[in-house]
Simulated assay, not measured.
Amino acid sequence: MGAVISACTKKKSGAVQASASNIVPGTIEEVGAQWIRALQGSEALTSAAALYQGSSHTESQRAARNLDFPHLIVSAGLGLISADAPVPHYAATILAGNDSVLALLSGGDKAARWWRWLQANSPLAQSLDHVLNTSDGPCLIALPQPYLAMIADEVLALPPAALERVRLFSGMQAPQALAHLQMPYDERLDDKSKTYRGTRQNFASRALRHFAETILPGRETQSAAQHALAVDASLADWTAPELTVGQRKTDTELRAILSAHWDAMGGRSTRMLRLLRDDLGIACEQGRFAGLMRDMRATRGGTA
């Protein structure tokens, strides 16, 4: 049996009990101590599998179920946790914006330092080495680039035999020392005739699901190079969608368009973004779109 490891998601169920926005900036030890106290003060717990929401998490769950592998999650607030673990509803991320832990820390190389501290001090975290030691199959790690970079040192510290069982899935190039373990998925995954299309945000988990469903079964003991060749062969006849330059709109124009389609789309971000980009051919950068949706949701309501 192997393992599936995916990323936490910003969208979560329930009410926030521990938020990085309430932490006072300082050294990593000062910030970390405050954060652990906030987690320990949380009363209501839910399984990590039920806490995280969104298509990326759903795709990763599906891959783990298909393989009957344990599912683990890289959490910026909790460490590497089992999807079965009871956890508090928290708000913490290494990405820019609200609840960014890295914005609280002094010094450089913040993400990697934070991960090392969290793995050593979080009462919920387990080491990647332990995960590999308690399994004998492939370890499939699907993470966006910032999270993959955050845990790269821990991956590289694995014993050679364990490291060779790792397979990486990400929308961006893995660190050079790990590049040979990254599976060669690209824009062909968005072939319009296939069922693996999605947003760039969930690319890693969609690639993971394709690998779990069509590549790994029957090839569990093959090398990373053999797996990469199988991926290339599987995608050989797939076609990447043509890139088009979308129309440019002002914020006022975009708000009017979003408002006109709000009810039909149920106020859902993923559906709205698809509508703009695919159906209406309108360009809107992800961060800008997220800000517009937050503003509109504050006045109109809806889901993420």
Rank of each mutant, 00 (worst) to 15 (best):
G2V: 01
A3T: 07
V4W: 05
S6Q: 05
P25Q: 08
P25G: 09
G26K: 10
T27N: 13
V31T: 05
A38E: 13
A38F: 06
Q40A: 11
A44R: 13
A49E: 06
S55G: 15
S56Q: 14
Q61L: 11
Q61E: 07
L72M: 06
D84M: 07
A85P: 03
A85T: 14
Y90E: 04
Y90N: 08
I94K: 00
G107C: 05
G107S: 09
G107M: 06
A112C: 04
A125L: 06
D136S: 14
G137H: 14
L156E: 15
A161D: 13
A161S: 15
R165G: 11
S170Q: 11
M172I: 03
M172L: 08
Q173I: 05
P175E: 05
A177N: 14
A177F: 12
A179N: 14
E187V: 02
R188F: 07
D190Y: 14
K192F: 04
K194E: 05
N202W: 01
L208M: 09
P217N: 06
Q222N: 12
H227L: 13
A228F: 14
A228K: 10
A230K: 11
V231G: 02
S234V: 00
P241M: 06
T244L: 02
Q247C: 05
L254K: 08
I257W: 15
S259I: 07
A260L: 11
H261C: 09
G267F: 01
T270K: 06
R274E: 00
E285K: 06
F289N: 01
G291V: 04
T299C: 08
R300S: 07
T303D: 09
T303C: 04
A304Y: 13
